[in-house]
Amino acid sequence: MKYVYVDESGSPHLNDEYQDSNDYYVICAIVAEEEHHHSRIRSSKDIVSRHAGVGELKSSNIGLASNRRRQILMDIFQEEINAFCLVVDKRRIWRDSGLRFKPSFYKFLHRMFYNRLKSSSLEISVYADEYGRSEFMESFEKYISSETSLLESFCFDGSRETPLIQIADVVAGSIRRIYDGIDDNSLIPDQGRNQLVIEEWPPPDATQDQLETSHDTDLVIRSIALRNARVYVEKMMLSDEPESILRADAIRYLLWRFEMNPGKYIHRQEIIDHLHETSGATLNPTQLTSRIFADARDSDVIIASSDGGVKIPYSADDLRRWMARTESQVAPYLRRAGKARNRILIASDRKHDIASESAFPELSRYLRHL
């Protein structure tokens, strides 16, 4: 069993009018194994008492006092307290995605956060700092419990009564200050670097040099796929043609769904319904492929497809499934066309080519290799 105490730092808003001076949102979990749980509770009480007296230890109360903050962090990590932080760069999230709504932003990121935690343990009990109105906390508690079935329990708890949540608050606020450029990396003591795991989201785009030297096929695939999709959307959005706007909206929807869950395929009907709701367009699955995806693919957008739907590829497996599906559909047609062509060529002493280069330049090129 692992006991996890969670707090966050930063605003869960994408909208400019709600944003404060920071571009990052940080969720921090203080993680205690069952055999160390009680000792971690005692240590956290000592740290809070030492640095806040009878009050509450909070990052916002430490403020600009960097030396005090550094000493508090040193005391935290000297007690062998382990922390996991998810650092969200809000600038890299699409402003018109579903995450622009505060409840969606909060629920999505915390679901991803807890899914990441549960991957490291079969049993987890979570105590999260109270957030928002009681109705929201109640609905979120039900939501996160149903979404993350491997959590042994989840509940909101008051930070004043829970010192380990106060520790999570300090670590989250300190990491956000580093990412926002207020403090430098030296804020984290050397011993803390071995007890602090940081994951960034969305993953940083790979540079061209990284792509050329990378041995990670999945990294190359998703970096190029995301880059090409975003370039295509920008290109389509510059046009006033309704068809171009429709294409942009469809690919933007794939990008948004990639944001939400990069491994999941999206049913074609779901995309059709989305386009109907946003633009009034009425399409069927065949038209979605011929009018939208065909143009996007001709413009270098990589879209993986399967019987379960379509998606921006996240890994080599996504493309292998698509290639296997393409081979199973296209190869038999080409083989049969090649056989028919050869029969006519043989029967006519090669005088009649039903797939001549002049009539079918692309098809004849493929058939020559059969």
Score class of each variant (00 low, 15 high):
78 Q>S: 12
58 K>W: 07
192 G>N: 02
358 S>A: 13
17 E>M: 14
237 M>Q: 15
324 A>T: 14
314 Y>V: 04
151 L>K: 07
84 F>Q: 11
278 T>L: 02
145 S>C: 12
321 R>V: 07
122 L>R: 15
267 H>A: 13
204 P>M: 03
221 I>W: 14
90 K>S: 13
69 R>L: 06
26 V>S: 03
357 E>A: 08
318 D>V: 02
307 D>F: 03
189 P>Q: 01
40 R>G: 01
87 V>R: 06
209 D>G: 01
83 A>E: 04
343 R>H: 02
122 L>I: 05
346 I>K: 02
358 S>I: 09
29 A>L: 02
206 A>Q: 10
114 Y>N: 01
150 L>F: 09
157 D>R: 13
164 L>I: 06
306 S>W: 03
41 I>F: 03
307 D>C: 03
365 R>W: 01
226 L>D: 12
44 S>I: 02
247 R>P: 05
68 R>F: 00
217 T>E: 15
336 R>K: 10
144 I>G: 02
50 R>M: 14
99 L>Y: 05
114 Y>E: 00
305 S>R: 04
209 D>Y: 05
294 A>L: 10
24 Y>R: 07
27 I>M: 12
357 E>Y: 05
225 A>G: 13
275 L>M: 06
341 R>D: 04
341 R>L: 04
181 G>R: 09
71 Q>A: 09
281 A>N: 02
113 F>C: 05
350 R>D: 08
245 I>H: 15
116 R>Y: 11
99 L>E: 10
169 D>P: 01
230 R>M: 08
342 N>C: 00
360 F>I: 08
125 S>M: 07
83 A>K: 08
185 N>A: 05
217 T>S: 15
157 D>N: 09
109 L>E: 11
72 I>P: 02
54 V>H: 07
299 S>P: 00
232 Y>R: 03
187 L>K: 01
151 L>F: 07
292 I>V: 12
125 S>Q: 06
353 D>A: 03
31 V>C: 07
27 I>H: 09
323 M>N: 12
111 R>V: 06
305 S>C: 07
331 A>H: 11
113 F>T: 08
259 E>R: 07
270 E>I: 04
89 D>P: 12
298 D>G: 10
334 L>Y: 02
49 S>N: 14
337 A>W: 02
265 Y>W: 07
367 L>R: 03
200 E>V: 08
115 N>W: 00
140 F>M: 12
104 S>L: 09
236 M>I: 06
37 H>M: 13
31 V>H: 01
231 V>W: 08
248 A>S: 14
335 R>L: 14
317 D>Y: 01
348 S>P: 01
171 V>D: 00
49 S>D: 15
88 V>F: 12
96 D>F: 10
169 D>Y: 03
88 V>P: 06
342 N>D: 11
231 V>T: 14
251 I>T: 07
230 R>L: 05
347 A>F: 08
78 Q>W: 05
46 D>Y: 12
119 S>W: 01
84 F>R: 13
37 H>I: 09
93 I>Q: 10
114 Y>F: 14
113 F>M: 09
324 A>H: 12
34 E>H: 15
271 I>L: 12
30 I>C: 03
